[in-house]
Amino acid sequence: MIISKEGVNVVSILGNDYSIKAPEGQEQALADAVIMLKSALAETKRNYPTLIGDRLLVLAALNLCSKQVELKQRHAEELERCQQQVSATVEVISKAIGQV
């Protein structure tokens, strides 16, 4: 990734250059996203060596989205579990305070 004077990042993906301007302070997030996408493309290419161009890009993007959906679901489940624990703790504390 190349950063120009104007804060525009030039990203090369599958041989094509894309000029992307990241919001101030988000340059590292963009760099991390580029690394993640390139890694996903390489993994997808290993698994499907005959895919090229847009088809490779779309399958890699779908794989990333699938992982994101799974992480979002696990996060929601974990959040629910934590909320149940907090509620149970509050209930125990409320009962203890009521006994004093």
Rank of each mutant, 00 (worst) to 15 (best):
G7Q: 08
K95I: 03
E27Y: 02
A76F: 00
S19Y: 06
I3P: 02
A40Q: 02
L41E: 05
E91N: 12
Q84I: 03
E24A: 14
A61H: 02
N9V: 15
K95N: 11
E77M: 00
E43V: 03
Q68N: 13
Y48T: 08
M36H: 08
R46N: 10
D17A: 08
E6A: 13
E91G: 07
V11Y: 03
Y48I: 05
I13F: 04
H75S: 13
K38T: 09
R55K: 14
A96N: 05
V8F: 01
V8Q: 08
I35L: 12
C65I: 09
H75V: 08
S87G: 11
Q83C: 06
S12Y: 01
K5G: 15
S12K: 14
K5Q: 14
N16I: 07
E91C: 04
C65Y: 10
A60V: 08
E91I: 02
V8E: 11
L62F: 11
V92E: 15
N16C: 04
S66H: 11
V100P: 01
V8L: 08
Q26C: 13
C65N: 14
Q84M: 10
I3D: 11
G7W: 01
S66A: 13
K45F: 01
E78N: 06
A31L: 15
Q84V: 02
G25E: 11
A96L: 09
R55S: 14
G53D: 13
Q84D: 12
A88R: 14
A88M: 10
V11C: 02
V100W: 09
T50M: 06
V34Y: 06
L37K: 04
Q99D: 12
N47C: 04
E78C: 01
V86C: 08
K5M: 13
L64M: 13
Q99L: 11
Q73I: 05
L37G: 06
P49K: 02
D32Q: 14
V86E: 07
V8S: 10
Q68W: 04
D17R: 11
G98I: 01
A22R: 03
V58F: 02
L64G: 09
L51K: 03
N47T: 05
I20G: 10
Q83E: 14
T89C: 12
I35V: 15
Q28D: 14
